[in-house]
Design a protein around this nucleic acid. Structure first.
Length: 274
DNA sequence: ATCCAGGATCTCC
DNA sequence: GGAGATCATGGA
């Protein structure tokens, strides 16, 4: 099945750091896992070729039903810095990932590096989830993880994040975090609710909201974004309030802006020595 | 060996 | 309420 989209790059979208569950099988060809689903997807020019089931789900996952040309126009119209960041990877889409999977993934991401995050998520999946294809595991459900202890997680290498996972799993299993209900919360209320989970601070909450709950106005501020904003937008001193600055500059498009800037800054090593 | 990684929490004052 | 230390682990 094919679909055309000139504003989408499969490679840029998967490899810009928002998602941890994909394998590159060839240039512009990937196997992607989300929840209990797996898809083989390839991009040839502007054509996206899906091989697998639930194509409507995957079109939504890759956010192919949104017009990104308007977003990029608004962001870059009076902002040469943003125009440069967008032109570096103009095909980035914000993925619509599964809530529970995103919550645990970004709890795991704290004070960690991307290769190791991917490895830990694979440990979670291969130990506790169903094998949906040969050698390919679903992401475990909260139910499947209900009996896993802090010590079990520590032995798998999660370190100090073990007790955070246990708390998140417990609260989800208690029914306090139903995805469909959460989507209707206003952003500030939703952030506070997510932050009641031990191990979820402001940044992880924002990642969960942006990457899995459709809150495209939030601006997750990690160390890279702090460096990028300070170097590119505030060369004469650090920005006092990063959230206010992002809101003022990018408004309702802050989530998209964040991902363009994050990827650009990380690839260019902006603010890093060397 | 020392530092660092898409931070959050705890512990001081 | 804000700065500083601490947290597990593995790769550079």
């Amino acid at each position: 099945m094919e679909k055309n989209d000139a504003d989408f790059s499969l490679k840029e979208t998967l490899e810009c750091g928002q998602c941890f569950r994909f394998e590159k099988v060839a240039e512009n060809k990937y196997t992607v896992i989300s929840g209990f689903r797996v898809i083989s997807v390839e991009q040839v020019d502007d054509s996206i070729i899906f091989s697998g089931d639930d194509i409507a789900f995957w079109r939504s996952y890759f956010d192919l039903n949104r017009d990104y040309s308007e977003i990029k126009m608004r962001l870059s119209r009076e902002d040469a810095i943003m125009a440069e960041a967008i032109s570096f990877a103009p095909g980035i889409h914000i993925l619509n990932q599964a809530f529970f999977e995103t919550l645990l993934s970004f709890i795991i991401s704290q004070n960690n590096n991307i290769p190791r995050i991917r490895g830990l998520i694979h440990h979670l999946s291969s130990n506790y989830a169903q094998e949906i294809q040969k050698g390919i595991f679903a992401f475990p459900t909260a139910g499947e993880l209900a009996g896993v202890s802090e010590d079990d997680f520590r032995q798998l290498g999660f370190g100090f994040r073990a007790r955070y996972l246990v708390d998140a799993i417990k609260k989800v299993n208690e029914g306090a975090f139903d995805e469909e209900v959460l989507r209707d919360y206003p952003t500030p209320v939703l952030r506070e609710k997510l932050m009641t989970i031990c191990g979820v601070g402001h940044k992880v909450a924002d990642c969960v909201m942006l990457f899995s709950l459709g809150k495209t106005d939030v601006f997750p501020a990690d160390v890279w974004i702090q460096r990028v904003m300070n170097v590119l937008y505030s060369p004469n001193g650090e920005t006092a309030d990063l959230q206010a600055e992002a809101s003022r500059r990018f408004g309702m498009d802050a989530g998209f802006a964040q991902q363009y800037l994050f990827h650009y800054g990380r690839m260019k090593k902006i603010g890093k020595e060397g």
